[in-house]
Design a protein around this nucleic acid. Sequence first.
DNA 1: GTCTATAAAGGGATAGAC
DNA 2: GTCTATCCCTTTATAGAC
Lengths: 238, 238
Amino acid sequence: MPFQYLNMFKTSRRAVPQRATSEETRRLVLETALALFRERGFDRTTVRDVAERAGLSLGAAYYYFDSKEAIVGAYYEHVQHEHLTRARAGFEQSADLRDRLRAAMHTKIDIMQDDRGLLRALFRYGGDPDHPLSWFGPATREQRRLSVQVFDEAIADERLPIDVRDITPTLLWALHMGILLYFLYDRSPSAQRTRNLIDSAVDFVVGGRRLVTLPLLRPVRRRVVSILRDAALLPESR
Amino acid sequence: MPFQYLNMFKTSRRAVPQRATSEETRRLVLETALALFRERGFDRTTVRDVAERAGLSLGAAYYYFDSKEAIVGAYYEHVQHEHLTRARAGFEQSADLRDRLRAAMHTKIDIMQDDRGLLRALFRYGGDPDHPLSWFGPATREQRRLSVQVFDEAIADERLPIDVRDITPTLLWALHMGILLYFLYDRSPSAQRTRNLIDSAVDFVVGGRRLVTLPLLRPVRRRVVSILRDAALLPESR
DNA sequence: GTCTATAAAGGGATAGAC
DNA sequence: GTCTATCCCTTTATAGAC
């Protein structure tokens, strides 16, 4: 078990801070946990299992994460960070709206491809507003903001009326949540059906892009804006 | 405990079948269970508690429902039946689309008004395709079909192009699911925010009703139809 | 102090008598 | 249809070993 030697120098009182090593260990715990979640499921994985496979004591594991839930919180952050990074890499490849939306959607599924079991387990918290892991609760507001931001950047170069500009990222986020739900239920090989749905949905959005600016649809737009605002479904500050 | 006398004549071998009494007892178990779910929550209610308060033995309760989940299944059916009944009563009051959609949406919240805690607990099953209580899984297909049917009847008298006619009930069902999610998180008194959201959403739909038939939007409609079909999101037979 | 083995409790579900 | 008795699994508590 070589892992336990990662911190073998921690007692030597060096002036150099050990942040790198500490972060590595934290990362090791996170990745070990994810591997176990994938292997045997979220519920059947104990923090003990994680610590054991990571070559750490139970106490050490709890030093890095206050709880099993905190590990999941770190996973959320990882997904978010990874999504922003990969999507931006995609955005640099093309200024075309279709390409950018595809990148935004597909990279998310890429990241989560192997974690459907975990996501299905985490879905349960979605119904509890007070749970720190709820995808819709106040505790994950920051994650949601970052998630919306990906779509905000995807349409950053589009010339759109200000009202459309304001609500589109949130609507795209909602669409992407719907696609994630579809993904949870998708049993096709490599989630091919979800991939197809993404492409179709993106084509639909791109097709709608020209329509929304029509004067005829102006009242509809205004109505959508006011609905979302009244329902407090838009991020507070823009 | 007067309840246990409901069947006090059970040993008299009357020719008349006792179905009525049996149904009453079943109903008693269901209503007792719901009362306890509301009082102390789904997880903290045991079948033992239900049986005790209903004045039955544990075994008797299990005679009527194979499991605690089966009780919830009966609740789903109750909600569905009640929704269809109340919505139809509303539909008889008005031929106006706005009124009918409002009736369809508001009656659903009326029925569930006191069960938000239970719904939040049941939400957890939504992520598991194989769970019999998942709102999106194959096991509840029939419930979903009936749920979509309410919206089908709401728009029954509208003169709409066939493709719009085919997909609108499903889209309205999806909208209503989104509103239910909002409802789970709504902490305003009497779920007033949800009520407002319903009214706004209905106005939006009614406003869109004239637009969808525009020739300009024909390609958009066709695209939506094919997306939903390809994704198997429409009921099979219509 | 921490770990582990074992006991106790809780609770879903079933079997068979009546 | 309803009862009692019981099974069986999971969670929680505890006691003694290390």
